[in-house]
């Protein structure tokens, strides 16, 4: 695998050892160095998606961390203190909306962007709305350039 920043989950119990989510070093530093400090936590239960997005954003000058489910993401956020949460919606154990709500409660400054490949998630989104939370939702597949553009907007 081409990812140098493989995160291991202690909560998931599928790997032993300590979490080793080292912030990724920028491979090709972005000339707009102002963005290099923007931290994005990328969460997707499809490891390949989380890893590739993390790498792309890292190459674009963001500081990134990847996590592969909601619990893992909570743990990672506690250490990483991201500016952005970019999360899949349908995930085992804890879905993206629950994750977003939990993180928003601890960090009101966090900007949240959800993305999903499925249409059958409106119930999850509605549940969030019922609790007073509404999040921007992007449809997979999203082109990396568009994603970068979106993240640079704020």
């Amino acid at each position: 695998m081409l990812m140098p920043f493989i995160a291991k989950s202690t909560l998931a119990g599928n790997e032993s050892g300590e979490s080793r989510r080292a912030p990724m070093s920028s491979r090709a530093p972005d000339p707009e160095s102002a963005l290099s400090r923007t931290k994005v936590l990328v969460v997707d239960d499809q490891k390949l998606i989380a890893d590739t997005i993390a790498e792309i954003l890292s190459n674009a000058g963001f500081e990134t961390m990847a996590a592969y489910d909601g619990w893992e993401a909570l743990e990672a956020a506690g250490r990483f203190h991201p500016h952005w949460l970019l999360s899949d919606v349908l995930m085992p154990r804890m879905n993206g909306v629950e994750l977003a709500i939990t993180l928003r409660q601890t960090d009101p400054q966090l900007t949240i962007l959800l993305f999903s490949g499925q249409a059958g998630i409106s119930d999850i989104l509605l549940e969030g709305q019922r609790r007073g939370y509404e999040f921007e939702l992007l449809a997979k597949p999203i082109h990396p350039l568009k994603l970068i553009e979106r993240l640079k907007q704020e």
């Binding site: 081409l2 499809q46 390949l48 998606i49 590739t52 997005i53 790498e55 792309i56 190459n59 999903s116 490949g117 499925q118 449809a139 997979k140 597949p141 999203i142 082109h143 990396p144 350039l145």
Partner: peptide
């Protein structure tokens, strides 16, 4: 959609 997302990212990289 999920594999598409991966593919788009992989090709970009």
């Amino acid at each position: 959609n999920n594999p598409l997302e991966s593919l788009v990212n992989l090709i970009f990289l």
